[in-house]
Design a protein around this nucleic acid. Structure first.
Lengths: 252, 252
DNA sequence: GCAAAAGTGTTGAAGGTACACCCATGT
DNA sequence: ACATGGGTGTACCTTCAACACTTTTGC
């Protein structure tokens, strides 16, 4: 994993001057974490500390410059890995931000959002050449003031996530292969920010036929809960438009 | 209206060589037209004929290059006006397309979609310095093979339009100030491609409280129909995320 | 009167919410 | 035994689709 680009929005730019529009790619990465003391997961996201102006010292979304020979999707994957060492289970374009004043020099940011499984989030700590000093996880609801317009971008990404969890099965992007219905429900509850009726939740997911029951159970100090697995055959009304040519196309 | 940029994807580029990524802005413009012989409207869109390579002679989406000092939204408005002379009643970002091979030189296209009222669509014919020879309207469902990946882009825009008509009130962007419920229903029918029950349609829009009944009626060879006007106060769960800073922010 | 579209009423199916209740385990 | 979460049953309510029916105009 070689560093072919630096953090976006300024510094180390591919073109030298401020007479060109540069294209940056950033990603809002969501994962879950169970705060110590609580068993309920909350939505967290990794941010990187800027090491140069503008906004030096402030936290910002991970990202980097678009290379001339890589697609937007590829740039999102690459910069995400380079800055955080994470491997996402879901990656989807969010929006292109291009207001003139959002950075001192002209930058158009193509922003993605991604999901990382709780188990995979720990790879960051062991990860290769990631600058751990300057990466940290934050609760999505309690962010400090971020660089550029990144607070608004995160808000928008959260809105999209909450929206999408309602009509697609992206929740599986935050879960391991096998999980109980209670664990799945906790993912929904963490994203939506409210409790769901276990009985009704069970019926809804069961009627959608997206889950395959296994013969295994998760034990605890109560009745064992059946483990489920996502049915990969089922494609929900999820991606919407025609799949264009393989990669780099709309995901919704 | 001065032409400050040429058609996107190649030719007359702001930067000379193929060692930079250029940003283009294109727009899928939807309007309605009643085919002669039929009273039911169909969805149509304007395309421009390319006058230079690549894809010279082929039809393509109207657009142009992003200027260094203008926002993405502004670029969409400007290029839309320059190439077609149209003024949209709705303008919204669709997606950023950035596959490497979508053009001989590296181009990232920020694509918008727009609505133009039937009445305003005729301004194109009288419009200022628009090259009428190379602009034409096509039925959205019967497009010829277009330049670049523009066929897929139009499909995606159509999908978004159909989707959005279900949960927002964008349909008003295709209607004049006052309209009957039958006219509103015809817009929905044209977009969705299927007939709707007039009785149920009436109840749905009436219960949503987005329409203000006027005291005027449209007469014909039947019982006069009441004219309605859109209630500008009502904001549906429409734009979703926080309005960022005025312009150039996500619309959904 | 008749055709045609405007507008109202009614019914049944489907889906969501609330909540009572039983089941199976660890302690 | 009892606490805890797993899992089932059910009643109510809202929404939506289908369609019969009445109203008001032009011809």
């Amino acid at each position: 994993m070689t560093r072919t680009s630096t953090l976006p929005e300024a510094g180390g730019a591919p073109a030298s001057a401020d007479d060109v529009t540069r294209v940056a790619v950033s990603t809002v990465i969501f994962s879950l974490r169970r705060p110590t003391g609580s068993d309920r997961p909350t939505v967290v996201l990794p941010l990187v500390r800027r090491t140069r102006d503008p906004h030096e010292g402030q936290w910002a979304l991970p990202g980097g410059w678009l290379d001339i020979a890589e697609s937007l999707d590829a740039a999102a994957s690459r910069t995400l890995a380079e800055t955080t060492g994470l491997a996402p289970s879901h990656l989807e374009q969010l929006y292109a931000f291009g207001a003139v004043e959002r950075s001192p020099t002209r930058v158009v940011s193509i922003v993605y959002w991604a999901l990382v499984r709780e188990e995979d989030a720990s790879t960051m700590l062991t990860g290769a050449d990631v600058d751990l000093e300057n990466v940290a996880w934050f609760e999505a609801g309690e962010l400090p003031p971020l660089a550029f317009d990144h607070n608004e971008i995160v808000e928008y990404a959260l809105w999209r996530l909450r929206n999408k969890v309602g009509y697609s099965r992206i929740a599986h992007g935050l879960l391991p292969d096998e999980f109980t219905l209670a664990e799945l429900r906790e993912v929904y509850e963490a994203i939506l920010g409210r409790r769901l009726d276990p009985a009704n939740f069970r019926r809804q997911v069961e009627s959608s036929a997206t889950l395959i029951p296994t013969d295994d159970f998760r034990t605890g100090s109560h009745r064992p809960a059946r483990l489920y697995r996502y049915n990969r055959d089922v494609e929900l009304a999820d991606r919407g438009p025609v799949r264009v040519h393989g990669a780099d196309d709309p995901a919704r």
